[in-house]
């Protein structure tokens, strides 16, 4: 399974490096969002952490949705998903390969956006606990997102269908990620961060289990 996941990741990265279709769009979009919100909201020090966390997660969720729309759609355009389905590989390997591709792309966007965000909003985003929240939240959004993107890739209006399906499902992840980031950026003690952080971990585990159970059915005819 690892061989297949590695091959998928290598192929997606190489295609992206050559085509540069997705990453550039994601980075520009994410930077625009952060900058526009910074000018629109004249933030007082007292509300900076709570509003800033919201801005950060709006940026990440939108960028991740854009990435998810491309993850399977690019294969669908040339019927390339059939090449994957023809191969004698476990369907889950395809899921994890696509999940890791999406995760890598969104983490790259976050790596570009975070320094700019820290500069504009004057918030301590680089602390380990906040980075852990970002990783868990991004993963938590992409776990059901990858599953639903595979489902929506067959639909004509997939760009519209994916967020409509995904937002209600991913709501526990988004809300707990925003809450956890707010507490971490405000410098709260672990006891205040823990409830949202634990909910985030639990959501990730549940979505992982659901993906393992359902992906085979999603890609079947």
């Amino acid at each position: 399974m690892l061989r297949v996941i590695g091959a998928l990741l290598w192929k997606d990265l190489l295609s992206e490096l050559r085509g540069r279709a997705l990453l550039a769009a994601l980075v520009v979009f994410a930077l625009l969002t952060v900058v526009v919100f910074n000018y629109a909201l004249d933030l007082e020090r007292t509300v900076r952490a709570s509003v800033g966390a919201g801005v950060l997660w709006v940026t990440i969720v939108f960028a991740a949705t854009l990435a998810l729309n491309r993850v399977f759609a690019a294969e669908r355009e040339h019927a390339l998903h059939e090449g994957l389905l023809l191969a004698p590989v476990e369907r889950l390997a395809i899921y994890f390969g696509k999940l890791l591709s999406g995760l890598l792309f969104v983490l790259l966007v976050e790596a570009v956006v975070l320094p700019v965000f820290a500069l504009l909003y004057d918030l301590p985003v680089a602390q380990p606990l906040n980075l852990a929240v970002l990783l868990l939240g991004t993963l938590g959004y992409l776990l059901p997102g990858t599953l639903l993107a595979a489902l929506a890739a067959h639909a004509r209006a997939r760009e519209v269908l994916l967020p409509v399906l995904l937002f209600p499902v991913a709501m526990p992840v988004i809300l707990s990620a925003v809450r956890a980031s707010q507490e971490v950026l405000a410098g709260s003690a672990w006891v205040r961060v823990a409830p949202a952080f634990n909910l985030l971990v639990a959501s990730d585990i549940i979505f992982l289990a659901l993906a393992v159970l359902l992906f085979d059915q999603v890609v079947a005819e």
């Binding site: 192929k11 190489l14 295609s15 050559r18 040339h78 019927a79 390339l80 023809l86 191969a87 004698p88």
Partner: peptide, 17 residues
């Protein structure tokens, strides 16, 4: 699947590779 080779209407090749 391991014992089947298939050529359909699409070449199933990645254009950027």
């Amino acid at each position: 699947r391991a014992v089947v080779g298939f050529v359909g209407h699409h070449p199933l090749l990645y254009p950027e590779l």
